[in-house]
Simulated scan of single mutants.
Amino acid sequence: MSTVDDVIAELAALEDPRMRAVNEKHGDDHGINLTKLRAVAKPFKTDQRLALQLWATGQTPARLVALLVCSPRAFDADELDTMMRDPRVPKVTDWFVNYVVKKSPLADQLRERWFDDPDPVVAAAAWSLTSVRVAKRPEGLDVDALLDQIEREMKDAPAALQWSMNETLAQIGIYHPAYRARALEIGEKLQVLADYPTSPGCTSPFAPAWIGEMVRRREGAAALPGR
């Protein structure tokens, strides 16, 4: 049976100084290829005890493995709130929200708890969860109020929060035709991420471009035979 020390030693052996230099430019304090890190986690499948021990080390690679092997349903709301406020490493925060919080039955409770949090990273998580609701379970959401807040606050929001609010704006425009014109209008007015560098073949995160491309794809798929 592998111990925490075994896992940490295995991760340390994967450290690449050149990759660390690249990651540190994005605020991530590790130099491990994430495909190789996932391979370290894979044999454990779900191991909540090991996950808690790895998280407690405070080390970024160990915490990333912890997020891959934990059971999202095993945490209560206060535990998830504490974990959300603990990491200040972008990749840990990203994986925590996407691999743990979004898979928890407490996701919507936390969305409401974090929505107007003064910490922009925590508030960004709430908007990310809101994007999921907009696309998959919009019942009960006040879409007009969301658009009002986006129009009022997104332009001057901190980067992480701005990105998540922009995602919600795009999801509203993509999945809710009745609000599409207003979503496009807000995006054009605010010009958030209009100049974001986008590789050829990739969709721009600029909301009007994102909405337009995804709507075209959805409408094209719906027109295929058998749909």
Results as ranks from 00 to 15, higher is better:
K91N: 14
V92P: 00
V97Q: 11
G58M: 01
A39V: 01
M84W: 05
T82N: 11
V101M: 09
D29M: 02
R73S: 15
C70K: 09
L52D: 14
R49F: 02
K103Q: 15
S104N: 10
D76I: 10
D116Y: 08
H26L: 13
A126L: 12
W55I: 04
V92Y: 00
L34T: 13
I32N: 01
A107S: 14
W127P: 04
D81M: 08
H30E: 04
E79N: 03
L80R: 11
P72Q: 10
A62M: 05
D94A: 08
K42G: 01
L68W: 12
D108H: 11
D81F: 07
K25N: 09
P61T: 01
Y99V: 00
D119A: 06
F44Q: 10
A123L: 06
M84I: 05
F96K: 12
L52Q: 15
T60C: 05
A41Y: 01
E112I: 07
A66V: 05
D108A: 11
R88S: 04
A56P: 02
E112D: 13
K91R: 15
D117C: 03
W95A: 11
K45I: 06
A62L: 01
F44R: 13
A66E: 04
R88M: 00
S71P: 01
D94I: 00
S71N: 15
W95Y: 15
P87A: 09
K91S: 13
D86S: 14
K25S: 04
R49I: 11
L54F: 07
N33Y: 04
D119L: 06
K45Y: 07
Q109K: 10
V100T: 13
V40T: 05
Y99D: 14
F75L: 11
R38W: 06
R85G: 05
A124W: 08
Q53A: 14
W55C: 06
V40C: 01
